[in-house]
Amino acid sequence: MIRCDQLCGGYRGKAVFGPIDLTFEAGSVVALLGGNGSGKTTLLKTILGLRPPLSGVVYWQNKPLHALSLAERARLVAFVPQQHKVTFGLRVRDIVAMGSKAGLIKATSAEALARADAALAQLKQSHLAEKRITELSGGQQQLILIARALAQQTPVLVLDEPVNHLDWGHQQRLLDLIVQLAATERTIIFSTHHPDHAKRVAHRCVLMRAGQVLADGACVQKLTSDALNDLYQLDF
């Protein structure tokens, strides 16, 4: 379980969101929706401990986040970022194996590569294993990052706009995968610009505007036309 108490976050001392109180129950799938610049990514990064909070506290399994080592965090939560910069042409299999080894310094290369292969197979991307990451398209690179997070085998998975760059087919496969993972009691938090995706796979959605939570509850109840018009400030 992840809990935010009066959490406020931002950049260079300037608040982007908060104060926010949120709880992500174990085994739940939560979708984060909101317009560009509403604070979704900053909130996710603050929850992950990648950015220090301006105020408030994040708890992972009832422990303050700052009390957990980086290795402990890597064993609890895996992250798929919204943007990924590729410079050096590392082999895909080795990049996915970084997830297998996260927080487990003693994992052998053979074990890590086996977990990497399994994650690639789960996403039906085994054929890319020996390619260099620089040879792949944006969508394929996104799938490799998702495979890396799967190889991390954490109880919590955080995905920031995971369908970015993915074709329609891969979007559907990813949504199916989220449903499968949820069935194994994993907690999944993802941000999205697709309300239909949230309705299809999320138990709950959190709507954000201007750094504040506008609504929080079951997707069926909260993602109505009026609520979406209000969220994205559409005037018809």
Partner: peptide, 20 residues
């Protein structure tokens, strides 16, 4: 060397993969 590989993915990703 292995940490350098992971850090080549960017600071935030490296941190989320357990690298100080």
């Amino acid at each position: 060397a292995e940490r350098l590989n992971i850090m080549s993915q960017g600071d935030e990703e490296a941190q989320s993969l357990g690298v100080p």
